[in-house]
Design a protein around this nucleic acid. Structure first.
Lengths: 133, 133
DNA sequence: CCGTATCCACACCGATACTG
DNA sequence: CAGTATCGGTGTGGATACGG
């Protein structure tokens, strides 16, 4: 997903248009990997950058760094630099604001879990029905 | 917003990978206008296509039709053709499954509402902080 | 009234490489 | 170890037009 929702919402807020509450929230975790980052940091505590890389092996180095930066800009995560040694490590953790998103993320997890179970049970080709042409 | 999350999730499910519950849910309402469509249909009942157009004046004719088709494919909305007269009208409404998403959408509304109030009160340039370069 | 096709601009994201 | 720049493929969404 794209980040266009996020940029559009930012523009609307700059224009004084606050009639985008749902989109504003969506923009917080819209974008590839963001939901997973928030979920991991929320349920398992803080992680170093390279640990997040290991948790999300399909995420490219560049995109992971970019998404973390955006989450930090949105005040959802904290970034702490540990400069003790030859190598610098950076630890990420959820802010209280980021933690306040967890009920929504968890609700999304539960909804998806239940829906996937239903589809599996009824064997409807996993429910990804195509409209008849 | 894009639909890449939706397509990616569909592919993962086809591959037998069900470890994407949160992304699966996100894919339901990710994509421009979808959250608003669900919200309107959920809180105000069914609408004709042209009524939705009026409710979402910035959505192009093409994209609105496309998103409605996707929502229908995902079994979130029903589509009913009323062919009484020279002009055909099409009514859209939420399915029970679509209605089951409302608690999440409403939670997103509430989160965004509260967050925007906080930012307004504290006047932090509406919180869209930029990371120092 | 509603759906879809075409064309086009642009944003995203991956691969790669360079920096500190 | 972590962040950023560049290049390129691809998907998304707007304008427009045509078909049912």
């Amino acid at each position: 997903m794209t980040d266009s929702v996020r940029k559009l919402v930012q523009q609307r807020l700059r224009d004084g248009d606050y009639t985008c509450r749902k989109e504003f929230t969506l923009a917080m975790f819209n974008g590839k990997w963001k939901v997973n980052i928030i979920y991991h940091l929320g349920h398992e505590g803080s992680y170093y950058f390279h640990e997040l890389q290991a948790l999300l092996p399909h995420a490219s180095h560049k995109e992971l760094a970019k998404k973390l930066k955006e989450l930090q800009e949105d005040s959802l995560i904290d970034r702490e630099i540990e400069d003790n040694g030859p190598r610098v490590k950076v630890a990420y953790s959820l802010t209280p604001l980021g933690r306040s998103l967890l009920p929504i993320i968890d609700a999304m997890y539960d909804w998806g879990d239940q829906r996937l179970r239903e589809l599996n049970v009824h064997d409807v080709q996993f429910g990804l029905g195509q409209v008849k042409q």
